[in-house]
Write a protein that binds this DNA or RNA. Structure first.
Length: 267
DNA sequence: ATGCCATGCTCCGCATGA
């Protein structure tokens, strides 16, 4: 059994206490982390390694930045999404994890990516076409990964609420880049390739959110959005046992505005 | 209609976020 989580921590340095506390209690085997907001030299590597994690980082000063944490051996495959050499944002890192299987020296290969998809707001600015182009690049790369027929998890902050059921106030968010039809169409296109949303595969209940704005008491009113996702390849979907959203970190003092989403694979 | 709150840096006002 392997537990894989994705969490936008909104600055690893500002929230390291909450992150370490959650790692200790939730004990995920793999963490796909977004918005670390630091270069590799500013990442609190020793504190995380002390909890038994290997670390792979694609860092950036001030903004963005993604990482992979793994209790099992981890190899970095790429630190950028292919398709645009001029894109300097640290929004993608992909790695290979060797998961021990059985009592022998055999292992199963797990491929994971930590994704921080562009927000895209305001939707009438050049940030929106950047988001859509980024999603097109992700589609092309994700299609290539499917041809490998591996156990693959593409997890992260997709900055897209798939349907109105994933938004507390669909009408109010209608024109937002997180909910625009162009964004949702591209997220659906990833699913049509063959990837499965680990939450929706197992949960039909309403008000499943992963993000609550800091403002206007959104957390206290449970006014959130589901924008963090774990997309599973068919080979990973075959192993899917459980999934969920861990709301506890969002209720702590000085929290990230996102909370972890997780799944368990029978691997 | 706007700000609300929070992050980091050209660090006390700004850009960015969702």
């Amino acid at each position: 059994m392997i537990r894989i989580a994705s969490w936008n921590v909104n600055s690893i340095k500002a929230h390291i206490g909450n992150v370490l506390g959650w790692l200790r209690s939730a004990k995920p085997d793999v963490v796909l982390m977004q918005e670390i907001k630091t270069t590799e030299d500013g990442f609190p590597r020793l504190e995380v390694e002390d909890l038994g994690y290997n670390i792979a980082i694609a860092g950036q000063k001030t903004y963005n930045g993604v990482a992979i944490l793994s209790k099992h051996p981890l190899t970095t495959e790429r630190v950028a999404l292919p398709g645009d050499e001029t894109d300097s944002h640290a929004r993608y890192i992909e790695g290979i994890i060797e998961v021990p299987s059985g009592g022998t020296s055999a292992h199963r290969v797990l491929r994971v990516a930590s994704i921080y998809l562009p927000n895209g707001n305001p939707a009438n600015s050049d940030k929106f076409p950047y988001k859509l182009a980024w999603m097109d690049r992700l589609h092309a790369h994700a299609a290539g990964l499917l041809r490998l027929e591996e156990v693959t998890v593409l997890g992260g902050d997709y900055n897209v609420a798939p349907t109105d059921a994933d938004v507390y106030d669909p009408e109010g968010w209608r024109g937002d880049a997180l909910c625009r039809p162009e964004s949702r169409q591209r997220l659906r296109a990833l699913l049509y390739l063959g990837y499965v949303d680990a939450i929706r595969a197992l949960h039909a209940e309403p008000r499943l959110y992963t993000f609550w704005d800091y403002q206007a008491g959104c957390w206290q009113r449970d006014e959130g959005l589901r924008i963090d996702h774990l997309l599973l390849s068919p080979q990973a979907t075959d192993l899917l046992i459980a999934s969920g959203i861990d709301r506890e970190p969002r209720g702590k003092d000085k929290p990230s505005d996102h909370t972890p989403v997780w799944c368990e694979l029978d691997a």
